[in-house]
Design a protein around this nucleic acid. Structure first.
Lengths: 330, 330
DNA sequence: CTGAAAGCGCTTACAG
DNA sequence: CTGAAAGCGCTTACAG
């Protein structure tokens, strides 16, 4: 633990430790000659200020909490990349809080607060009143990522999933398809409900009967489910909330000799790597998940530095989506 | 920032702040009655000690750094889940350091040290002398995850990839296959080199000619590459270092009418979710990536609490692998 | 532009 | 078993 301290730098530079601190935090307040001398010594000795001491003294830690429900989905990983890139750019470090079991949500929030971060990035697909309540009393800014905020006071960065599903459905209808089913998940997620609303709106607009089916997220369960579903009838199009589920459906279809896309067209969401590794390759909605993380972190830095910004009505930033047409549609 | 402080608790409980601190850190040193009284007030007020102050005063932060090259691969995400679960169990928080560009490796390490973590979990597929050098001078314990340590002084948790590839190759030979190719990546990774060694050893043992091919990691590039490769000849078996590349090869083969597994058998590594979503489903080596993270974190906690342990020759823990036989082999 | 001093919220020997 | 006091390594008004 014989790390260089600020005292060592001050001693070597022949200045007070206050000056060294200023060089680090408010360089413009230090005369250039002094500053350069100090900077050189800092570099030579490889001095890095102790983050805890810094955080304690300044009441700012330059770290942000990233609260996520689980990491296993590829999309969350990509989001974190986006967050981390922005964090690096603005000089923040990220601290990960993974919340596996909902029960301990409140405890987790307590931990987050106690870790004295300067801000919080939050994703969770199931928002409860309790969470909103906790956020209200949080002393640092909070921004939602890939999660739509229901409150005017909480900013968010998301994609208009409803519009996205609406656009895709409409496009497929105009291409002459009528029998379009929407495949959701048994476990209802807010974002998936947005997709469903968009699908239903488009169907209604064209006087077509919406057909919503809920499948499990589990692949082996899904296969049996999809077999039965396809036994009953083969729709023109299946719009599926997740790429992996879409591919699972497609594989079952192909195995039974159903031609994709000739007899059945399949569309997924998120345009994950799965979409490129399926055969035929999957058409999928491109969701800018990296961008969401990146923008959310940038937005958060504004809130953290600017007390005024916090008071303003929070921004709800909607990022544009895309649709990547591939072999599973015609 | 009107958070409850330790003083508030002490005041409310009618004890000194030293006692409150002891209740938190060395409860056995406090009389039960006192302890319970303090504990109750802590709970009522929802008091959480300030992490920075704690870290500064105790010189322990109860946070560990997780240094990874990138997050995009599903395997890293799963590893972090394993780490986080163990971290929760032992009361640690994790701080993520993502290292995208190797150039700044040293700077990153400086940041890690300065963040005053109690220990470091490190994954990197390309170890340079510089990294080893830096680790030697690191004041806190370091454990490698899914990375084999070349030094006796650094502990690691990994899988014997060489043995794994050897076993698979041998098994395929004994099933009567002779024309077995190994598909690696252009970019050489240490772990992939281990696989290659195992493959070559098995082939040599049976007096068969090893055939090593290097493909790009990029899917679109790969497809062209695999077309050419299959034009030349269709081997009995392709052992491929990554699931995604294996599936890419398989898809190209299936599209040209090559029967998998009848004419060509394909085997991947890592048993990711991709393996279940391919058609036919991919045979793959099961690598306990969650377990690796979990074990590494547990091992690290031992090193962090026990100064003696640090002095000992570091453990190299090898976790067992499995092979999941699916439709892409017969 | 710079320094002396107080203080951030805790932990931990040291006494008692 | 408990308290008073020093100290962890910084930052930041406050003077000058």
């Amino acid at each position: 633990m014989n790390q260089t301290k600020i005292y060592d730098i001050a001693g070597a530079a022949g200045v007070s430790l206050a000056t060294v601190s200023r060089v680090l935090n408010h360089p413009e307040k230090v005369k250039e000659a002094t500053r350069n001398k100090v900077l050189k010594i800092i570099k030579d000795k490889g001095y890095k200020p102790n983050a805890n001491a810094r955080g304690l003294a300044s009441r700012r830690s330059t770290t942000v909490a990233v609260v996520i429900p689980e990491l296993s989905r590829a999309s969350v990983a990509e989001m974190i990349q986006g967050i981390d890139d922005a964090a690096k750019k603005f000089g923040y470090t990220i601290r990960l809080f993974i919340n596996r079991n909902q029960e301990t949500e409140e405890d987790l929030w307590g931990e987050v607060i106690a870790s004295s971060v300067d801000g919080i990035l939050f994703t969770n697909d199931e928002m409860t009143k309790e969470i909103y309540h906790q956020i209200e009393y949080t002393p640092v800014p909070v921004v939602f990522v890939n999660t739509l905020s229901q409150k005017d006071t909480i900013g968010s960065v998301c994609v208009d999933y409803e519009d996205c599903a609406y656009t895709i459905t409409k496009e497929m209808i105009e291409r002459g398809n009528k029998d379009i089913v929407f495949v959701g998940t048994e476990h209802k997620y807010t974002l998936n409900e947005m997709k469903q609303r968009g699908y239903i709106r488009a169907m209604n607009e064209y006087k077509l009967e919406p057909q919503v089916i809920y499948s499990s997220g589990d692949i082996s369960v899904n296969e049996e489910f999809f077999k039965k579903m396809l036994d009953e009838k083969v729709p023109d199009v299946a719009l599926v909330v997740r790429d992996s589920i879409a591919i699972s459906l497609m594989n079952v279809a192909v195995k039974r000799g159903i031609k994709v896309p000739d007899q059945l067209q399949v569309i997924g969401f998120q345009n994950t790597r799965y979409a490129l590794l399926s055969n035929p390759k999957l058409t999928s909605a491109e969701i800018p998940i990296y961008e969401m993380g990146n923008r959310a972190m940038s937005y958060l830095t504004e809130l953290m530095k600017d007390d005024e910004a916090k008071k303003r009505k929070a921004d709800k930033i909607l990022l544009p989506y895309g649709i990547v047409w591939r072999e599973s549609t015609r």
